[in-house]
Amino acid sequence: MNIFESMSKIDRRIIYLILFIVATVPFLFKVEIPMKPTSDVVEAYNFINSLPEGSAVIISADYDASSMPELQPMLTAILRQLFSRNMRVLVMSHWALGVPLAQKAVEEVAREYGKKYGVDYVVLGYRPGLQAVMVSMGKDIPKTFDNVDYKNRPLKDMPVMQGIKNYDDIGVIIGFEAGSVGDFWAQFANARYGARIILGSTAVVAPDLYPYKQAGQIIAVLGGLRAAADYENLVHHKGTATYGMTTQAFVHFLIIAFIILGNIGYIATQRKRRS
């Protein structure tokens, strides 16, 4: 076996080990490489800034722990922008297990900014039915959630809900998407009711959302950890996404090196076979 052949036959466990090391070391040194925010993130940030203070914003946490590393820092950064501009935040979810994650983020950021439950933000919770919930919210948001928050407390007593009937009273819906819920936001809330939507999504989902952006159905697509890091940068509060991006870069370089190695081996073995 020559060097090229052995190059194309590294044991998978060695690959795993190298990956693990490359993903760990940059963290230990806390290297941070500055990045210029991508245009989509800047667009979303500017749009939110253009909303009048005190606007109501719906946060829809349509993800769960399986995509938390990407979406949780993005949500936290956006919440910082919202609370610093005194927006009213309505937290909901189309994935039941997104509720506790969004609630955790909103509680933490609200505490930092001295915001109060019921006055500045509310957790509406989750209702099954996806598209039906979106259509129903287009008519009556409180009624869709049975006029109570997730813990059964009446919404009509909460200042945060004053004057909110349907999408017309919402400045922007910001969806955090790990699946196809983002498509439905565009297809139902926007196409039918003209709701304004920003979609933050995992990197897996992001490419599928670009057609909606080009057609003007959504304002911007925020894709993956990079978008989260850019947002942390814009709100001047560095967090896990910013530190994670350095690691992300090194792992990408490693994977590209793997691809090149694999291909060198491939070409070499092809040559041998041919001769």
């Binding site: 590294i10 998978r12 690959i15 990956l19 994977i255 694999g262």
Partner: peptide
């Protein structure tokens, strides 16, 4: 899954 995708990139991602 990240480990599997790295291994797949090395093994299967060939310019055929």
């Amino acid at each position: 899954l990240s480990f599997f995708i790295a291994s797949a990139a090395y093994r299967a991602f060939r310019a055929r």
